[in-house]
Design a protein around this nucleic acid. Structure first.
Length: 851
RNA sequence: GCCUGGGUGGCGGAAUGGUAGACGCAGAGGACUUAAAAUCCUCUGACUGUAGGGUCGUAGGGGUUCGAGUCCCCUCCUAGGCACCA
């Protein structure tokens, strides 16, 4: 019936061409069909080409896409390129060529490789974050954030990587080394753009429990946001008109505080340190400043610190408490100062031991028996706390906060570990930030110019910074100036002091702006007549995360010229039904994208609060040695080579058969033989079997309908490995038959089609169908074949399997037990024994407990 | 250190508290072939018995249950995340 030889290369190329030319997988906006949006984390098109890990997630989303299309859904399955980023920039630096060229080549390679795997992608919606028509809207969203007071600039110590000549975000630094390249990094103060993601901490935390996400990822985000509830307590300082505020999650231990510690960078330190101690404190500050954060946060190291000579006054007892300085207190969390309760905090205890500070126990365990080992860090019953003695920690906490509030020396307080998002990079290959800087007086002119185009995105709180005693104000470009294109530059190398390569494009940087008309002209052309103001463009660019914060929206209306996403189309597609990508993005991309998306919801741009309601992480495919694939280990499997030797269908099928989608699992070059044989047997089966309008025998029908059900359930539950083994079981049976019914013959190939679409299209066509199998309605099972007349029941004696019986499914319990008692396997073990208990689980098991 | 997963044949893995090891790989034997490849058939957890069969077996130890890979407690190993966040 089909050709004798299974020539996968010819078959696969034929159908890939067919799908492309017939636009089989085009998604239709506003279709009346139910909609299904399957989204992959889009790749960074690296020079190395497609990795074996890419097709794993893509195949999973492709199976779902094809499955739901066959169920009659209008499916959106798009692909695009997250193409800004460091490797392309470094390539540009090394070769001196424009990163656009290299990026375009890499994108072409990725597209060709992905297309060769035969994914059901709507290529008419392809997007690229480096396309000005795309980043125009990335810039627009930035300006909206700017307008809503969610951005600011600050000269702050940031991670500076001398080797990369670039500033890195907290998240890009791992153990004091750059995430990319493992170069050392140091702290260095620079002017930076920062996004107030902390303003969204509560919203991001709240929505989390409504998401269908892996628990571990939710937990990571919860930990990253790091909400804690406690109290802020003010300690007046002896002899100085100042108060030191501390944050504590254990206000119940307030009476156990014996000293305070402030961070070396604390702004009050200068004012409170007594003159005799000033040298020691300054020396300590300098020593800390020289330390890398790795040294500073190393838990294993011995604590250090100096006494400031100052004393704080306990707000409840009036007792003077010494104020120490130590780098175990971080300026970036809470208020940069803590009250220390060595009896009930491990770190405070350690410090107190080292510097011989008093330890006062104020909490005892609920079921106290004898002495408590200190530090005791659990909650318990208060002691040595005057009027609070005998109260539980919970009650005391409330009572103490109450008292502080009455005294005006404390209040409830919620803190987050989440830090604001350092958003600027001193790089070329990123979205330019659409801001110009003007002098204070000129900013006043713009602000007073009614209808100035520069007021379109003007925030209520101006953004400014000071340099050499002069203030510079941020002026947002207006939307008609977008996109702000990346200018050509002569060198992609940042300057040694860390300025972006854009700073060298002086004719681009220095401009005249016209407050009334909004016109912008290069200063190089000389000052035009009229009321023009001198301005300098922002030369920092956005981080690579920016473009991936909203790409899921752009796929919906990729050519929309009036908004990031067409509101009507966004209302149609809503949100992806399925989002798949690596777990390495658990906190970075997934938190940033949630932030931007939620902001867009808040300003009415999108209809849903959350970008990705259902998320899944595919596991990693390891090399054959069980180690992570890497060039240096030489264990990299190249997908192109697999496709060349075994075909795209085999690659797809094998990656899905390897194990559970979420598991980390090693590649096995021998293992792929199994699925190759399976596909060959499938081909051979349709070559040899005769398909007619007759009936199948009962066992075949039963297995067929069971298989349909299992494959459907497994696809929907993402259990592709067991779906494939069911298909193998089904084929093992079918291929023994000389003839099968049309329903059986067609169903099998349709069940297999989402996994191995090319071979199935070919067989489908040769079975006489004129239309693509991708559009054929998916087979459904008939429940009548899933209920059995006769069931097999296992007979156990004392929990050990001794035999089995076949009984009618509707047999009475007494009949089943009688048959079980007298079955061949059971009789010898029952002889001479007394049955003390009979357990009968209908349709499953009978267990006799005997003595 | 803390928080999460996970530990099942030679290997990847399968098992709503109910026949452990489906499916596949590897291995053994056989058929076809001059031969090899490919393909097809049979066997394949360990120990034990001529055989019917028996005993053991899901990291280790305990427990709950008629019955535990699955639930509970402890220990070990392993992967991932967090890490002086007061």
């Amino acid at each position: 019936m089909v050709g004798r030889i299974y020539d996968f290369k010819t078959v696969e190329e034929k159908w890939q061409k067919y799908w492309r030319e017939k636009n089989i997988f085009r998604a239709e906006d506003f279709s009346n069909k139910p909609r299904y949006y399957a989204l992959d984390m889009f790749p960074y098109p690296s020079g190395a080409g497609l990795h074996i890990g890419h097709p794993e997630g893509y195949t999973a989303s492709d199976i779902l896409s094809r499955y739901f299309r066959a169920l009659g859904y209008n499916v959106l399955h798009p692909m695009g390129w997250d193409a800004f980023g460091l490797p392309a920039e470094q390539h540009a630096i090394q070769t001196g060529t424009d990163p656009r060229i290299n990026t375009q080549n890499n994108v072409d390679t990725f597209r060709r490789q992905i297309q060769r795997i035969g994914f059901a992608i709507d290529w008419s919606r392809e997007i690229n974050t480096t396309d000005p028509r795309y980043y125009r809207w990335t810039q627009w969203i930035f300006l909206q954030l700017f307008r809503h007071n969610l951005t600011f600039v600050d000269k702050r110590p940031v991670w500076w990587c001398p080797a990369l000549k670039s500033v890195l975000a907290n998240e890009e630094v791992v153990d004091g080394l750059s995430e990319r390249g493992n170069y050392p990094v140091v702290r260095r103060p620079m002017r930076q753009w920062i996004l107030r993601i902390t303003a969204y901490a509560e919203k991001l935390l709240e929505e989390l429990n409504r998401l269908d996400w892996p628990d571990s990822t939710k937990r990571q985000q919860i930990a990253w946001i790091g909400r804690s509830q406690g109290a802020e307590v003010d300690f007046p300082i002896h002899g100085v008109e100042k108060c030191l505020s501390v944050y504590t999650t254990r206000p119940d231990t307030l009476l156990g505080a014996t000293y305070l510690v402030v961070a070396p960078e604390h702004p009050l330190l200068e004012a409170i340190t007594v003159p005799e101690r000033w040298d020691a404190v300054r020396e300590y500050q300098q020593k800390t400043a020289r330390k890398s954060d790795l040294d500073r946060t190393d838990l294993a190291k011995i604590k250090t610190g100096v006494f400031s000579g100052a004393h704080a006054i306990h707000p409840l007892t009036g007792e003077p408490l010494p104020i120490w300085v130590s780098d175990y207190v971080l300026m970036s969390y809470g208020s940069g100062a803590i009250m220390c309760v060595p009896a009930h905090d491990t770190r405070d205890f350690e410090f107190a031991q080292l510097f011989h500070l008093p330890v006062r126990q104020v909490i005892r365990p609920l079921n106290a028996d004898g002495d408590t080992a200190l530090p005791y860090c659990e909650r318990g019953i208060l002691c040595n706390s005057g009027e609070y003695d005998g109260m539980t920690s919970d009650a005391a906490q409330e009572a103490i906060i109450d008292r502080l509030m009455k005294n005006g020396t404390g209040r409830q307080r919620i803190n987050y570990k989440l830090r604001d998002w350092l958003f600027s990079r001193q790089r070329y290959w990123g979205e330019p930030i659409p801001i110009v800087w003007v002098r204070e007086d000129d900013f006043g002119i713009i602000s007073r110019t009614a209808n100035s185009p520069f007021l379109e995105f003007m925030p209520s709180n101006p953004v400014f910074y000071e340099e050499d005693g002069r203030k510079f104000y941020a002026v947002p470009l207006c939307s008609r100036d977008l996109p702000l294109n990346l200018p050509p530059v002569e060198s992609y190398l940042p300057s040694d002091d860390g300025e972006s390569p854009l700073a060298r494009a002086s004719s681009w940087v220095s401009v005249w702006i016209h407050p009334q008309t909004g016109e912008i002209r290069p200063q190089a052309e000389g000052r035009p007549a009229g009321e023009w103001l001198a301005a300098r463009r922002e030369t920092n660019t956005m981080p690579q995360w920016a473009g991936s914060c909203w790409y899921h929206l752009r796929y919906m209306s990729p050519r929309c010229e009036t908004a990031p996403v067409d509101p009507k189309i966004a209302d149609y597609w809503r949100a992806p039904n399925f989002y798949i990508g690596g777990a390495e993005h658990a906190v970075l991309h997934l938190l940033y994208a949630r932030f931007w998306h939620r902001f867009l919801y808040d300003i009415g741009v999108v209809p849903s609060k959350e970008p990705y309601p259902r998320l899944f992480h595919q596991g990693i495919i390891l090399g054959e040695d069980g180690e992570k694939m890497s060039k240096s280990r030489g264990n990299v499997i190249n997908p192109d080579a697999i496709i060349q030797s075994s075909g795209a269908d085999s690659l797809r099928l094998y990656e899905m058969f390897l194990g559970p989608l979420e598991a980390v699992k090693p590649w096995d070059a021998k293992g792929i033989e199994g699925v190759i044989r399976f596909l060959k047997r499938t081909w051979k089966f349709y070559n040899e079997v005769s398909i007619d309008d007759g009936q199948d025998d009962d066992d075949t029908q039963r297995l067929l309908h069971e298989s349909i059900r299992k494959v459907r359930e497994d696809i929907e539950g993402l259990r592709f490995n067991t779906a494939i083994s069911q298909l193998m079981i089904l084929l093992n049976r079918l291929q023994k038959l000389p003839r099968v019914s049309r329903f059986a013959g067609e169903s099998f190939i349709q069940l297999l089609a989402p996994f191995a679409p090319h071979i199935c299209e070919e067989i489908w066509e040769q079975l006489g169908h004129g239309e693509s199998i991708a559009c054929a309605p998916f087979p459904n099972f008939d429940i009548q074949w899933l209920t059995r007349d006769t069931v097999t029941i296992v007979v156990q004696i004392n929990g050990k399997r001794r035999g089995e019986i076949f009984v009618p499914a509707n047999a009475l319990e007494s009949e089943v037990l009688e048959k079980a008692r007298t079955c061949d396997g059971a009789v010898p073990h029952l002889r001479g024994r007394r049955i003390v208990k009979e357990v009968h689980v209908p349709h499953r098991i009978v267990n006799f407990v005997v003595q």
